[in-house]
Amino acid sequence: MEIPVPRIPLGDWVEVALDWILTVLGGFFTFIRTILVGAYDLLLWLLTTPEWWIVTLVLAALGWWLRNWQLAVGTVIGFVIIVGVNQWANAMSTLALVTIATLIAVIFAIPLGILAAKSQTASKVLRPLMDFIQTMPPMVYLIPALVIFRVGVVPGMVATVIFAMAPGVRFTELGIRSVDREVVEAGKAFGSPPGKILRQIQLPLAMPTIMAGVNQVIMLSLSMVVIAGMVGAGGLGGEVVASLNRINAGLGFESGLAVVILAMYLDRLTSMQSKANER
């Protein structure tokens, strides 16, 4: 026997909603777009105006300062390879995109994580929301982002921010919740106000966990880069998409390798693992 299920016009609703959002909030989105494009252009200009070896040395020095000399050496080798496969410009535009996307994701994720740690209700609302945005196929975000922000680097960036934000929220919540209860109690017992307890005790003690979350955000951002390439974000993602369209295995491998090198650099730079080993 056949049980008739009425067709749910979910797709139509989404489109109507999107139209409505565009007419009501169009000006706001233009504003966002301008800011994001401006930030991206500025960072890209900083990364591409000097000679490639100057940028490489600066990034290597950053690695040395934050971590150790091994990372500095690795950085030089890796970036020379990127230049060798003729992907320098693309790699820098990807680096700029990932950096800005990560910054925005972290700016949203940490306060949300703090909120979730403080309020049981917020935690209950945010958990399924984070599940949703993290498991939804990331390309789905591209379509509305494309409609709202038009072709270019911005829709890729926005989709990346949304997709990559979840671990930032989760790790922040986890980090704050797992601070020793007695230590937080000590803050209260001596009469410290909640904001000060957060700033002086909870956030510093949760920092290793929060940084692990930031590291995850960066890795997810990078994994979005290729998808963002489909909507004209350019960079290494654009190269991968182009090589796919032309069935060009050589180009695909070269740009793919550059993504891997960037990923390794950013991971080592931000993971707490290497710092723990030093002690």
Binding site: F190, G191, I201
Partner: peptide, 22 residues
């Protein structure tokens, strides 16, 4: 007022010390 009372008149020592490790 409660915070004020705690900071000026009541202090506490904890079983597992509850020191700030950082």
């Amino acid at each position: 007022e409660l915070r004020d009372l705690r900071s000026k008149h009541i202090s506490m020592v904890f079983q597992h010390f509850a020191l700030f490790p950082h």
